[in-house]
Design a protein around this nucleic acid. Structure first.
Lengths: 337, 337
DNA sequence: CAACATAGGGTTATCGATAACCCTAAACTT
DNA sequence: AAGTTTAGGGTTATCGATAACCCTATGTTG
């Protein structure tokens, strides 16, 4: 590999001079500068950022840790983060924890050993606390995305899960539904708790008593949850509508319903959190609370960089992005015959 | 940040001894080893991989460059690559070129300056040649994914675009279609050329003359290509079926058709390359040639690591993964009234 | 018991780049 | 004309880790 020393030798200057040319620091005559640059091009020089990071004690790399690269919510978020990072002069190191604490752990170690300047962290759940504390212990600035983690205070970008859930459920209630089921994510994820609260609140507000038999908690990644769905459907007074706490759960639910010959929305209304992008483009079917995923990433990077550069207020900042109720056709009016 | 020197001091040994403990090299008594390890834990030591890479001249990082992170084909591919890399003890640095040569260029420079051990490269198109040559000039091993680039010989993992296209078009022909349009990607992408060839071959095989008026070339990312679609539809003898060269194009085409009140498949049959994952899970509608995206990534990493470790034959290896014709309901029998 | 091997660990140079400081000749001051 | 700036660049130490080699006290052997 070509180093500044090779350049220096061929250009008949010292390595330091080359470094100064590269970084535009110090005093270098126009003539020397040109000569050095020419040699750099001839030899196809590319600086070694490892060496650079070592002495500078900074990498110009940010890390983005997401929990599911196959979920359009996170890929849009990633796009937002990428664009924003590039604009601010940072490179982005992606990681995908797969909603798995162990993988998350591995990525945290990798992040630490890479000495990234900051981390955009979408936690798998409450047990991510340990990992965030580790980052903090090492003084790595981070911004949390999408899910709050009890026990840690930091800059954070969240969606309004409670409000979004309320909107969806109130919409269903407005359609005449009274028996509304919730297929939720795991309760050790903050958004699942809030979506549950929003659900409960909407019911209460409309004088509908909460029936815990109609609530199912599983993982946000569960495509199929036939078992528990079975329980819902076998209920003496089965639901007429289902609120799925995210896009994947909705797809799982709908497929499971169809497999049983239950049509959506004719026999069962279904709504959910998060949009499906391509699916919705192709077939605007699901009624959803759509979150501004791209903004999550873009704003997250912005907060992070402000934090790194010290231009942020010392207090943790909390950004709550509203979701938008997009009414399509997966829910319909419920009328008692 | 804690370094091996801090550990060394507190454990009353030399830095070298710490290094030996970390890497399990040299001779260290069990007692010392334990003492050092204990101190490492106490101080929460994490090795600095920049320093490590600098002296070792290798990073244990592989880079994955994809062209569109929002396309499920590439996210599945990424998952495959990630799993495979992790298994082989490498970290993965993602990059997303957005089908943009300039962004690709930036990522190549970043890759070079990071001194990654190897690159999994999904090129934006033929003009990626320059970037691949740059990698080669710097002796960075790489494996090309999905799209061949004329002028460069290397390990490569491809789908069978020609065969897949033939299968799709022959399927349409089997349904009775004779006027079949092709909405293709840009011709400076190898897969687009091959899909065109497959299309042409299928027509010829069945004695249907190729009408260039029915072929449109644009970008794989174009969601809406109303203009050229207009041309197709205004044709004196308009097509009865459309073969879209990838998933995004298909979605664009279908939306444009619907906007004009043309129903799929009743008024127009549509098939395409690549599946839509969630969309297909929710609504198994599009008839597609599905590619084993996960395998692209997994196999790519495997070839790459073999190349890096020198366990591969010197000759470039070419892996062609077949696609699978998945018949659903976006195409129907065409009968002349 | 002298000669030698070995366990256990330390020294020093090095990877590539940069910060901090130093040096010299020409230009400028008064 | 002597002192002072300044342009233009060079020297040296350093970041954190490791390779290659060296050192010393035991243990082993004939």
């Amino acid at each position: 590999m070509v180093t500044i020393y090779d350049i220096a030798q061929k250009a008949n200057v010292s390595a330091m001079t080359v470094s100064k040319v590269i970084n535009n620091t110090g005093r270098i005559s126009e003539q020397t500068r040109k000569r050095v640059k020419k040699v750099m091009e001839e030899l196809n020089y590319v600086p070694n950022s490892n060496a650079r990071s070592l002495v500078l004690q900074q990498t110009q790399i940010l890390s983005l840790l997401i929990t599911d690269i196959t979920n359009p919510f996170y890929t849009s978020l990633a796009r937002g983060a990428e664009d924003s990072a590039k604009k601010l002069g940072y490179r982005l190191l992606f990681g995908n924890s797969d909603e798995d604490y162990d993988k998350e752990q591995d990525y945290v170690d990798m992040i630490l050993s890479t000495r990234v300047d900051g981390v955009l962290f979408a936690p798998a759940g409450d047990h991510s606390l340990k990992h965030l504390e580790k980052l903090r212990a090492h003084n790595i600035p981070f911004v949390i995305l999408d899910r709050a983690v009890p026990g840690i205070e930091s800059d954070i970008v969240l969606g309004d899960s409670k409000q979004g859930a309320r909107n969806l459920v109130e919409y269903l209630i407005g359609l005449g539904h009274r028996r509304i089921a919730l297929v939720n994510g795991s309760l050790d994820v903050s958004t699942a708790r809030l979506r549950y609260e929003g659900y409960a609140e909407a019911l209460q507000l409309h004088g509908i008593s909460l029936d815990d038999e109609l609530v199912v908690h599983k993982s946000y990644r569960e495509y199929k949850g036939e078992d528990q769905l079975e329980r819902l459907l076998k209920h003496p007074a089965p639901p007429t509508a289902i609120f799925a706490a995210n896009n994947f759960l909705a797809v799982g639910v709908i497929n499971a319903l169809r497999k049983r010959g239950i049509r959506v929305p004719e026999d069962m209304s279904v709504v959910c959190f998060d949009d499906l992008d391509l699916s919705s483009a192709l077939d605007p079917f699901l009624t959803v609370a759509a979150q501004p995923a791209y903004q999550f990433g873009a704003m997250g990077i912005q907060l992070l960089v402000e934090r790194i550069q010290g231009s942020a207020v010392p207090e943790p900042r909390k950004l709550i992005l509203p979701s938008e109720l997009v009414i399509r056709s997966s829910a319909k009016i419920f009328a008692t015959e």
